[in-house]
């Protein structure tokens, strides 16, 4: 195992140190570890190139002139290889450390820790005294971040099975834009390629594995796309006026826009986008919450109550 590792490191060093492209012949004669028949060396080299690419190391191919039947050459440029994050301060490193620590025990823990090692290798010491003592944590049960992040990075396409409203399984093809948490759930936003419009998906409603595929047509992520705005503004907002019994419906009270004391009851206004969602929250509170306006919402609640009576008597 060590021999292979040594060879990969020596190859990386040789390709990074060279200013011009190195031909395979030069590599085989100068880089330690290429032994055996020409075919063996060739196979070793092909595998090594793949391995380095899998480590995220980009090998440039070039330097040959087809007119003269020249051999292809290889090199790694320092611009591609090295981390270039400009000037960073001790406070920056402290913030980045907190960012990495937020993944402890969660999906991207390993990636976060290896990123942190790279950042700490810049040689700037973390100034922990500069930042308040907070330790926010991310939670990511069973989420396939790898497929999603690869697809976002390569502008690839994700295919997955999504559980629809009536548990029907839908096959989706999505060009992913971004991921976000909201109210304890993870969401993926992207262009649904069948529907040709932007959609959001709750990740816990994906059934089975997410596959990342190369896209046949390249797409761009809109520069001004903001997933949080998108999730918050799915439709036009309406204002509901509701009567709420004193000391009750604390879940709704948190979102009250206005509140008027009416003795035994309070009258509140609430903003909502999805009528069926707000009807659910109103009904959850039983006779502690009554809709005053708009009439359409009142009718919606009345019709749901009639359904409930009809199906339960």
């Amino acid at each position: 195992m060590s021999r292979k590792i040594e060879r990969l490191i020596n190859l990386t060093i040789a390709l990074l140190a060279t200013k011009r492209y190195l031909t395979k012949k030069e590599i085989f004669s100068s880089v330690d570890g290429y032994e055996g028949s020409p075919e063996t060396k060739e196979r070793m080299f092909e595998r090594d190139k793949d391995d380095l690419r899998n480590l995220g190391i980009h090998i440039e191919v070039g330097g040959f002139d087809p007119a003269f039947d020249d051999e292809a050459g290889y090199r790694i440029t320092s611009e591609n290889y090295q981390l270039d994050i400009g000037n960073i301060s001790g406070s920056d490193v402290a913030l980045l450390s907190l960012a990495a620590e937020a993944w402890r025990g969660a999906a991207l823990d390993e990636a976060a820790q290896s990123a942190l090692i790279k950042l700490k290798s810049i040689g700037v010491e973390s100034d922990l005294d500069a930042i308040p003592n907070i330790s926010p944590q991310l939670r990511t049960p069973n989420i396939d971040f790898e497929a999603i992040s690869q697809a976002i990075a390569q502008r690839g396409v994700l295919t997955f099975t999504y559980i629809g409203r009536d548990l029907e399984l839908q096959n989706r093809r999505v060009a992913p834009y971004a991921i976000s948490t909201r109210k304890g759930f993870w969401y993926l936003a992207g262009l649904d390629l069948e529907k040709n419009s932007v959609r959001t998906f709750r990740l816990d409603r994906i059934d089975g594995l997410i596959q990342a595929n190369k896209s046949s047509t390249r797409y761009e992520i809109p520069v001004d796309f903001d997933i949080v705005n998108y999730l918050e503004n799915v439709g036009e907002s309406e204002i509901a006026t509701v009567d709420v019994r004193k000391g009750k419906a604390h879940l709704l009270r948190i979102h009250a826009l206005t509140l008027v004391d009416k003795g035994e009851w309070d009258q509140m206004t609430l903003s909502y986008q999805d009528q069926s969602r707000i009807i659910e929250s109103i009904l959850w509170h039983g006779d502690d919450v009554l809709v005053v306006a708009p009439q359409e919402l009142r009718n919606g609640v009345i019709s749901a109550l009639k359904d409930l009576v009809r199906s339960h008597v």
Partner: peptide, 9 residues
């Protein structure tokens, strides 16, 4: 010099 960050990182 430290290596570039991978996309996951």
């Amino acid at each position: 010099q430290p290596r570039n960050l991978t996309i996951e990182e």
